[in-house]
């Protein structure tokens, strides 16, 4: 995935059973953002792979004051890339569960 300067990782082990997963996001390279992020904290949140979109979560992060609105696309892309990887792994590792 492209290096967006925003890192997103699983915050829990993915067993492929739940549609909702915990993710953790933090800024690795502030210079890649247009606005100044709130701080250097890691933001943990749950994401429903079936019902939600990365754009929704990114928008909620902007509205919650974590990022400047001009960075909504880069945050959404960072989440989208990680979610795509999780779904890719699920389809290959747990196809029967799916």
């Amino acid at each position: 995935a492209e290096d967006t300067g925003v890192r997103v990782e699983l915050a829990e082990e993915d067993h492929g059973r739940k549609s909702s997963i915990a993710l953790r996001l933090w800024v690795e390279d502030p210079k890649k953002l247009k606005g100044k992020p709130k701080d250097n904290g890691a933001i943990e949140f749950t994401f429903d792979l079936e019902k939600e979109t990365p754009d929704d979560v990114a928008q909620e992060m902007i509205e919650s004051g974590f990022f400047h609105e001009s960075d909504v696309k880069i945050v959404a892309k960072s989440i989208r890339d990680r979610v795509a990887l999780i779904q890719w792994r699920r389809e290959r590792i747990w196809p029967i569960v799916q």
């Binding site: 690795e28 390279d29 502030p30 210079k31 904290g41 943990e44 979560v57």
Partner: peptide, 27 residues
């Protein structure tokens, strides 16, 4: 470590914790 919780009006909960130094890229 200190945790901060932010709840968005749509109901989603964000929990903020310090990022370990080892995970921050040097700039």
């Amino acid at each position: 470590s200190s945790l901060t919780q932010v709840v968005h009006s749509a109901g989603r909960r964000f929990i903020v914790s310090p990022v370990p130094e080892s995970r921050l890229r040097e700039s």
